[in-house]
Design a binder for these strands. Sequence first.
DNA 1: CGACACATGTAACACGTTACATGATTTG
DNA 2: CAAATCATGTAACGTGTTACATGTGTCG
Lengths: 197, 197
Amino acid sequence: MSVRQALLTLLEQGPMYGYQLRVEFESRTGGTWPLNIGQVYTTLTRLERDGMVRGDGADAEGHIVYRITDPGRVEVEQWFATPVARTQPPRDELAIKLALAVTAPAVDVATVIQAQRRATMQALQDYTRLKREAATGAEDRSEMAWSLVLDSLVFAAEAEIRWLDHCEARLRRAASGTKKATPAPQAATPNGKAVTR
Amino acid sequence: MSVRQALLTLLEQGPMYGYQLRVEFESRTGGTWPLNIGQVYTTLTRLERDGMVRGDGADAEGHIVYRITDPGRVEVEQWFATPVARTQPPRDELAIKLALAVTAPAVDVATVIQAQRRATMQALQDYTRLKREAATGAEDRSEMAWSLVLDSLVFAAEAEIRWLDHCEARLRRAASGTKKATPAPQAATPNGKAVTR
DNA sequence: CGACACATGTAACACGTTACATGATTTG
DNA sequence: CAAATCATGTAACGTGTTACATGTGTCG
C-alpha cells in the first residue's frame, strides 16, 4: 500500500505517463525496490477510478499523460502527515523464522542464526561498496534520496545483526540455565493458551 | 510468503487443525502479526493441493486435522537452511516516504521526520512496557519466542530512530551547503533522466 | 438465555509478481 | 538489420485483508 501514494506523490510534481513514473520511482530509490511496470498501469487505473488522477488523452509524443486531481493532492498531504504506524508492522520473515525455530525440535537455531548473519553481513558489505561508488557528493535531490535509502538499508542490516547476536546470547544463557536449574520444569501456561500437542 | 512455511513448521511439530494453527502461531509471536483465520484455511487448501500436507477427515472431536508430508518436511528444512535474502527486501514504506519527500517541493521533510520520530518513540515505549510486563522469566519455549520477537521490534525501532536522526543531520548539512554555494544552481541531469516538469 | 469462544468455511477485493503480446524508436 | 530501449497494456496467479454465513459448546 505504498506504491499508490508514491505514484501520487510523483504526479504532484508534474504530469507524467506510466513508463516515466517507473523510471522516476527507481531513480529516487536507486532500484532498491524495482517497480513492476504492469503494476504501474493497474495502479493508475485504480487511481483514476478513485478520482485521484485523470488520464488525459495522448500528448504531443503520443504518451498517455496522467495529472493529479485535488482529491489526489489531499491524499498525498495526508500520507505525509500520518506517520507510518508500528501498531501492525509488516510481517518480518526473519523474526517469524527464528520464533518458530526456537520452538521446533527438529531445527538447530544456532545454525540458522549463523547462516543468516553471514548473509546479512554480506549484504552490509555490498551496501558499503555501493555507498563508496555513489559518493560523488549527492548534489542532485534524486541522488540524495537514493543515498538516504541506502543508509536506511545499512541501519536495518546493522540492527538485524545486533538482534541475531542478542538471540544467540539469550539462547546460550537459556540452554545453560535449563541444564543447571530446570531439567524438566513442566512450564505453566499462565494465559490459558495451552501448548496443545 | 512466510505464512505458508510458518504453518508447515507448526505442522512438523504435530498434526493440527486450522483454528489451532492460528492460536499456536499467535502465541509464539505474541499476537504481533495477527493471522487471519480465513487465510489459514486457504493456505491449508493450497498446501494440500501442492502435496505438502494431507487433511485427514475429522478426528474424535470432529476437527479436520492436517498432517505434514515428506515433501512438506523438505520444504521446511529448506526454508530454515536458506537465509532471508536481502537482495530484494520488502518495500519499506517509511524509506519510500522520506525518499520521495526530499524530492517533493510541496513537502516539509523536517516535519515528516519529527512526526515519525514521535510515533516510533511511542512504539518503543510500548514495547518496553510489554517487555516489563512479560518478564516473568521466559521459561516456556513459546514465551521465549515471543520475547525474541519483541526484541526484534525494539531493535528495528531503535534503528529507525537512528536513521531519522541521521536523515535530519544530512538534510541540515545539505541545506546550509546549498545556501552558501548554490543559491539556484540549475541542477544538471547527468543521466539524461530529466526531472520532467 | 445471551454473550462469547470455538470452528470451518466462502466471496470480494486489493496488492503484487511473472509472463505474454504488441508495436515504435533508437542505436550499434 | 538486429538488438535494445521505450511504451502500453492484459492474463494468470499468489498472497493478504475484510466481511459474511453458519453452527457448536460453554459459562455467567
